[in-house]
């Protein structure tokens, strides 16, 4: 068999491999497009079901940790939002709400307690939470703070 004929058959073999590769590449590209659209759809649905809030945890010793843009379910309360970013333990008092005992293992002791505040953008100051943290429903863009402190009242 001549060398020219061999090269022709090698070329045909490579052409077949190329066809198979094109098919596989086309298939996986279409799959990636399909799954990307599914992912984007899921993200879009998730955005409809969630909202962004900002959470600050102030440990009272100069350490402050911000959790900006935290995604939380809509209609969620302060306690549930805090539980997304920190380990929170509390005691529930029926009719009154949950009293937070510790955040990230920092417990209420020595007259210091975990108090929560909400940022008032109009007055530009922190306002003490008016109710128990599990009774206050957050809105899109709210900013809350937990501060470990000796209550002023």
């Amino acid at each position: 068999m001549s060398g020219k004929s061999n090269w022709m058959w090698v070329s045909i073999g490579l052409l077949c491999l190329l066809i198979a590769a094109i098919y596989l590449a086309t298939y996986y590209y279409s799959e990636s497009v399909y799954f990307r659209s599914l992912y984007e759809g899921a993200v879009s649905d998730l955005k409809k079901l969630t909202m962004k809030v900002n959470i600050l945890i102030d440990y009272g010793n100069g350490t402050q940790t911000w959790y900006n843009g935290t995604s939380v379910p809509r209609e969620t309360n302060v306690l549930m939002a805090t539980r997304i970013v920190a380990l929170v333990k509390g005691t529930e008092y029926p009719g009154m709400g949950t009293f937070v005992d510790s955040i990230n293992s920092v417990r209420n002791e020595g007259g210091k307690y975990w108090m929560w505040y909400i940022w008032n953008p109009d007055k530009r100051n922190w306002e003490l939470g008016p109710v128990a943290s599990d009774k206050y429903v957050l809105r899109e863009g709210d900013t809350i703070m937990w501060r470990y402190e000796i209550p002023s009242f």
Partner: peptide
């Protein structure tokens, strides 16, 4: 057409090979 029939085409081609 190529995308939707890619698996059928590959099965056909490999089996015919």
């Amino acid at each position: 057409a190529i995308i939707s029939g890619v698996w059928f085409a590959l099965i056909h081609e490999v089996s015919n090979f």
